[in-house]
């Protein structure tokens, strides 16, 4: 990584930091379009983070770790979906339940397996392979910022494109959107809105599992609460991104930049760590309020 001037490494790390937001938000977009508020993103991510790093270390294979981490997250998503949709529980409460469950389960398992509730490092774990294309990397600025990240980062971009295609170009996407907009229309043609809701939840399980894997495998460690509110921020990104993949990409870019900037600020100024940690929340809540003010006046301005 060339250190020409300070914004370049900051932008480079922006790209890295935004990936988990992006993945979680893209999965959350499916549930949002299917008409459900998915608070469980945070917990699903946490489960993905825990199982992917632990199982990668146990199997010695990063790939297997990622796959199994995603699988664990999908299983959790299924439970969340089953209770919400089939047992007709309030999805907002079950979302909280998923988060609490993930929090409890990861700590209990970590303690029982490693005898430790703190940071668990996996020394034997190999690094995520970087995608390095020397010829592209030599392009000034662009090459510095966009090239040389690990493969999961690029996979997250692929997921955005894939999501856009699925949502707008396939019958499945059409039905998911129909489910959210008018479940009666889906029911009237003999399809089950509940089933499409479940598909959306499982997709969010998939992307959140991957998002968690990105977090923990990049670090080569598991930390309790490693997701530290990213699921919530992703949720806000869905709204700020106007519920479309491109908008979400931009919103996540902004959040990634904010976090990257605060990390950088910590390096050069003497800001307490807790403030740095609080920064993404503050940015997010401010962005959210600003967004709702804009929406409010747009709506109000449209009347007389």
């Amino acid at each position: 990584m060339s250190n020409t001037s300070f914004p370049i490494p900051m932008l480079h790390s922006t790209i890295r930091i935004m990936a988990p937001f992006l993945l979680a938000a893209i999965g959350g977009l499916f549930t949002e379009l299917a008409g459900m508020l998915n608070i469980a993103l945070e917990g699903l991510m946490l489960i993905g983070a825990f199982f992917s790093v632990v199982l990668a270390a146990a199997t010695g294979s990063l790939f297997l770790g990622v796959v199994l981490g995603i699988l664990a997250s999908i299983v959790a998503a299924y439970v969340f979906g089953f209770i919400s949709l089939n047992l007709r529980a309030n999805i907002f409460i079950t979302g909280l339940a998923t988060n609490l469950f993930a929090e409890g389960l990861t700590v209990v398992l970590a303690f029982q397996i490693f005898g430790n509730k703190g940071v668990i490092r996996f020394a034997n774990l190999s690094k995520l392979p970087d995608l390095s294309i020397p010829s592209l990397q030599r392009i000034p600025v662009i090459g510095d910022i966009f090239i040389g990240h690990n493969v999961l980062i690029y996979i997250s971009w692929l997921m955005v494109i894939l999501a856009a295609i699925v949502i707008y170009k396939t019958p499945f996407g059409l039905r998911i959107r129909g489910t959210g907009s008018n479940p009666g229309a889906i029911e009237a043609i003999g399809l089950s809105p509940r089933r499409y809701g479940m598909y959306a939840i499982l997709i969010s399980g998939f992307t959140c599992g991957l998002a968690g894997a990105v977090l923990s495998l990049q670090m080569g460690a598991f930390v309790p609460g490693i997701t530290s509110g990213r699921g919530w921020i992703a949720l806000v990104a869905i709204y700020l991104g106007n519920k479309n993949p491109l908008g979400i990409f931009i919103a996540c870019l902004v959040f990634g930049f904010a976090e990257s900037f605060s990390n950088y600020a910590q390096g050069i100024m003497d800001v307490p760590a807790d403030f740095i940690l609080a920064f993404p929340y503050i940015i997010t809540v401010v962005a959210m309020i600003a967004y709702s003010i804009v929406q409010h006046y747009r709506l109000k301005g449209s009347e007389g």
Partner: peptide, 23 residues
């Protein structure tokens, strides 16, 4: 030899089911 967070698992299960109308 178990850890305190077991309580949060029990709590999460209650959260999961307490609004389940089917129950």
């Amino acid at each position: 030899d178990v850890t305190f967070e077991l309580a949060s698992i029990a709590r999460a299960m209650i959260f999961f089911l307490v609004t389940a109308q089917a129950l």
